[in-house]
Every structure is written in structure tokens, then in C-alpha cells.
Amino acid sequence: MRASWLAIAAKDLRLAFAGGQGPVQAVLLGLLLVFIFSLSAAPGDRFSPQQAMAIFWLCSSFAVVLIFSLLFRFEEENDTATALLLSPLPVQGLWLGKTLAGLVLLVLCQVFFFPAALVFLGLDPGGSPGGLVLMVLGVDLGLCILGGLIGAMGHGQGAKDALLTIIVFPLQVPLLLGGIRIGVGLMQGLPLADLGEWFGLVLAFDAVFSGAALFLFPHVFRGE
């Protein structure tokens, strides 16, 4: 029972890679975005760290949408959603499992985005790598918490789930601002202590939306 959400996450990850596909669509879209944005500077010109970070987070933000659309599509085939709802698993466990699986897939995408940003945008990874990893995980967690909640709304909506992006992106704004600002600060060699407020904000986002999702997810994902 305790590890049921882990089982959900593991199942989703197995399914995601079963067809040899994984998050390929999200990775490709992100790489394409980085490449297209690299055209906005004249050859030889460098992007400012802030521009490079903003593009990196934009790619991640798009990837999250694709990833959660994929994760909830799994439950549509064979109507496994009903099976999950009938199982003794608490509904929130499903949200937690999806969030976790999404987090793994998103980090995987960023493993591709980061070097792409290095090559095409001249992103300069100075500063503390530990802080960078901490920041990326904190922001990613927030993106996935929100993605898991809103993504479940798109479940069973057909084409209408694309509309949800219009509300997801503005909701992500505090996280994206945090990700950009911390990333730039770290690259400029600011000590972690100076970025405490931003880390606090990112953590507050994670905490607030985790709480909201625990309350609200049962209303979103339910039988007719």
C-alpha cells in the first residue's frame, strides 16, 4: 500500500519506454526550440545568461505539457482509469505516482536541453553545480506537481486538453522567474545564500501546490 504510488510511477516509466519512444517528442520539440531561438542572434553573438536560461526554461515548460499529456493518455487505452479508481489505491497516490514519473522524464529531457543550450546559446555553467542541480530539481518538482494536477483534467477530453496549456503557462510564471533568476545568479558566481529568497519562493510554490493537489486531485480524477 505504502509504495503503491511508486508502483504507479514505475509502471508509467515502463510504459513510456516500452515502445522505444519515451519522451522523444518532448526532447525533439525542446531541441528545436533551442535551435530556432539560436537564430535570433547574429552569428558570433552570444546570448546573455538570462536569455539562455529563459529559453532553457521555456523548453522545459513545453516538455512538461507533452510529458503529462503522454502519462495520462496511458490511462485512456483499455479504460485503465476506471480500474485504478476501483483499486484500493488512494487517488492521491495516483497523482503522486504521475508527478514522480513526470519528474524523471522531465529531468531526462533536460539532460538533452542543457548541452543544447551550451552549444547553441553559449550558456556558461559556472558557479556551484550542486546549487544548479538543487534549483533544477526544485523548479522541476513544481512544474510536475502542477502538471500532474492539470494534466489529469485533460484526461478523456480528446482535443480539448490542448486548451489547458493556455492556463498552465501563466500559472508557472513564479517558478519560471525563480528558475531563470537562480540560474543566472549561480552562473554569475553568486553564493547560494544570496539566492535564499528565490529558493524559498520555489519551495513555497512546491508546498502550496502539493497541498492544493492533495485536496483537489480527487475532484479532477474520478469516475462519472
Binding site: 492556463i167 500559472l171 513564479p174 522567474l177 533568476r181 492544493a212 475532484h219 479532477v220
Partner: peptide, 24 residues
């Protein structure tokens, strides 16, 4: 129900947006 969840989530976001805008 979905619209209600969105209405709640949107409002919960307001203070976070304001804080981040001020920090920025």
C-alpha cells in the same frame, strides 16, 4: 468540478506571482 479546481488553483497562484514579481 474541473472549472472549480481551476478557479481555486488560479487564485492560489496570485500571492506567489506577486512575490516573484517583487523579488524579480
Amino acid at each position: 468540478r474541473m472549472r472549480a479546481v481551476l478557479g481555486i488553483v488560479a487564485f492560489v497562484d496570485v500571492p506567489l506571482v506577486f512575490l516573484s514579481a517583487r523579488l524579480w
